[in-house]
Amino acid sequence: MSMVLTSPAFAAHAAIPARHTCDGVDVSPPLRWSGVPAATRSLALVVDDPDAPDPAAPQRTWVHWVLYDLPPTSAGLAEGVAAAQLPPGTRQGSNDWHRSGYGGPCPPIGRHRYFFRLYALDSVLPDLRQPDKARLLAAMEGHVLAHAELVGTYQRGD
């Protein structure tokens, strides 16, 4: 069985509702997952946009959310989950606004893709002191058992 990542808020490759963006209340969408391998000791979640600033001429990947050490028994995250509501043991990383927590889509131009990637790891990572995406991925190297991906899109003014 493969790991699967979904959201009741939007279908794969469909538009993310404005509620979950800077044009709405900017709360994280609800997420659900299944098929986590039995040997999993922790999960990590990274949400990013590879189309920044303009999908016609992308220059960088903008990171929206970084979480790690989620317990493998968790099956998802509620909409608008606050730090205090994260599953026990979950640690937060730093997004490209240089803060922890979710920062929703806010593309300056065009329709952007947002990749929600969930990783099953064979270990619990040490406290990385609010790592950015690159530091988290480096710490995960050699520990990924499986991963799942959900892609949503957003264009302002839709």
Rank of each mutant, 00 (worst) to 15 (best):
A9K: 01
A9L: 09
F10S: 08
F10Q: 01
F10M: 09
H13D: 15
H13Q: 13
H13L: 07
A14S: 15
A14L: 06
A14K: 06
A18F: 05
A18R: 04
R19E: 12
R19T: 07
R19C: 03
H20Y: 05
T21L: 04
T21M: 08
C22D: 14
C22H: 15
D23E: 15
D23R: 07
G24D: 07
G24R: 00
G24V: 02
V25C: 14
V25G: 12
D26T: 10
D26A: 14
D26R: 02
V27W: 05
V27P: 05
S28Q: 11
S28M: 14
S28E: 15
P29C: 10
P30R: 00
P30F: 01
P30C: 03
L31T: 05
W33Y: 12
G35Q: 10
G35N: 13
V36K: 00
P37Q: 05
A38M: 07
A39V: 07
T40Q: 07
S42D: 08
L45G: 06
L45W: 06
V47P: 13
D48T: 03
D48Q: 13
D49M: 08
D49W: 05
D49L: 08
P50A: 09
P50H: 05
D51M: 05
D51A: 06
D51K: 04
D51W: 02
D51G: 00
A52Q: 15
A52R: 13
D54L: 06
D54G: 07
D54V: 02
P55H: 01
P55I: 03
P55Y: 07
A56K: 11
A56D: 15
A56W: 00
A56E: 15
A57F: 14
A57C: 13
A57H: 13
A57G: 09
P58F: 00
P58C: 04
Q59R: 13
R60E: 14
R60C: 03
T61L: 12
T61K: 09
T61M: 10
W62G: 03
W62F: 14
W62A: 13
V63H: 08
H64D: 04
W65S: 03
L67H: 06
Y68L: 08
Y68Q: 12
Y68N: 14
Y68K: 03
L70H: 04
L70F: 00
P71R: 00
P71D: 09
P72F: 12
P72M: 11
T73C: 05
S74N: 09
A75C: 12
A75Q: 15
G76C: 11
A78E: 14
A78H: 06
A78P: 00
A78G: 10
A78R: 11
A78M: 10
E79Q: 11
E79V: 04
G80R: 01
G80L: 04
G80M: 02
G80Q: 02
G80W: 08
